[in-house]
Design a protein around this nucleic acid. Structure first.
Lengths: 231, 231
DNA sequence: TATCATTAATGATATATATCATAATATATA
DNA sequence: TATATATTATGATATATATCATTAATGATA
């Protein structure tokens, strides 16, 4: 799909029903007129840590990573956002500058809506406000849960977690192409790149998965889930 | 202080100016009439994972821990909440049951306000809605940041982090009584109890801190910060 | 006060994980 | 296409951390 050819009208956006369902036609037209839809190639930066926040960002298509650059300029991935996620997490309310950087890990489409418009909708449309916060809270809550789930497990449990995450929550299939490198997996679950590779090889030898480069196929999801549960 | 003798009027509550500043007298009276102020002794449960959420909970006084019980029924502490924090984090918008358990680690006072009242204020008072989310977002954001900061460091850096956290963000002093056991510190930063004790002893030998049971005094905060920065 | 249970402390050992080294493969770039 | 660069892969080794064992200290309870 050549994303650069597609322009979406908010009214017809398949995600509208979820995030922006409680808007009047008038309010929706306002967003549609003001929104900017941008296309990013894999590897493109969407925003950088420290830059001022001016827009509410909504991932319409693709996949992006949210990450921080540590003191030793190692990168640390906080989470992977999928279509329908709000990319800026809660920072848009709690900060004036971006707390994380965001980069496309697949070709992606991001909708930018001026923050002032969103804030004004929250002020003037109470039903929208409640729905909006419900949505944004779920995403933030799941980021916290993910961090805890990862931290309380060791290598094998963490790798199992990641494999299941992509399978269940992102691609909805036991067969997919891993969108990030082994190094990025390491940055996401706080382990060394070598050990990510090693554990993946172990899983292959154990017939839990099949690997060919980026292509992953989960062969025994029940056993993989048990590896995750055991930590 | 015998907390059980004190009852606070919302209008005079010292925290009101921050969280509930944009309410009319009428709205404030509604909260004041409906709120329930409960007193908890150290060790008392305030809410348990899985229980239905019916109130918005606000820590007026004391200190509490938010934690999850893992499969192996080890407890894992997500964060420590201090006066002025919203205890339920974002779950009140994203869930119908509590995602974490909350227990007092010092004698504490919690205000319970019926969720329906808060949600109604969000719907009808736009300025309040914005302020409220700003506040709640900051707390959730800082929980995420803390988790990342801890996970990207190893033992010495993590212990330094905890010592500095209590000093800077909770007690505002380099000398304080640690409100949690070594075991709970371990549950908060994902390391073994023995190693928590060991690293604390190391820090004592290095003249970074002085310890007498629960009493901690940071002797060289600059060096302790460097230990944290180095990871 | 005596007794029990919990917490703190420390050493020895086992295990988990990171780092270093090297090679093979894949991917980008000129 | 050739060359450089990054990624994947695996083994050997060093380091970090957990676990086990034991004792001391502290706090709770009768």
């Amino acid at each position: 799909m050549d994303l650069s050819l597609k322009v979406t009208n908010c009214k017809e956006c398949i995600y509208r029903s979820w995030a922006f369902k409680n808007l009047t036609d008038e309010e929706l037209r306002l967003i549609n007129d003001e929104k900017i839809e941008k296309y990013f190639r894999k590897g493109d930066n969407i925003c950088l840590e420290g830059e001022p926040i001016s827009s509410f960002m909504y991932l319409q298509n693709g996949l992006v990573k949210l990450y921080k650059t540590e003191l030793n300029d190692r990168e640390h991935i906080i989470s992977i956002a999928k279509p329908n996620d709000f990319i800026g997490l809660l920072s848009i309310f709690s900060n004036v500058t971006h707390v994380y950087s965001v980069t496309a890990i697949e070709d992606s489409v991001v909708c930018f809506v001026d923050l002032a418009i969103i804030k004004n909708l929250i002020k003037t449309n109470g039903i929208f406000a409640i729905d909006f916060f419900e949505k944004i809270s779920k995403i933030a809550d799941s980021v916290i849960k993910t961090r805890v789930d990862i931290n309380t497990r060791q290598l094998r449990g963490r790798i199992a977690y990641i494999l299941l995450l992509f399978s269940k929550h992102i691609y909805n299939s036991t067969k997919y192409s891993l969108p990030i490198s082994r190094k990025e997996v390491a940055e996401l679950i706080d382990m060394s790149t070598e050990n990510v590779i090693r554990v993946l090889s172990e899983f292959r030898k154990d017939k839990l998965i099949q690997i060919e480069g980026k292509n992953i196929e989960i062969l025994d999801i029940k056993r993989l889930e048990r590896v995750y549960d055991l930590g």
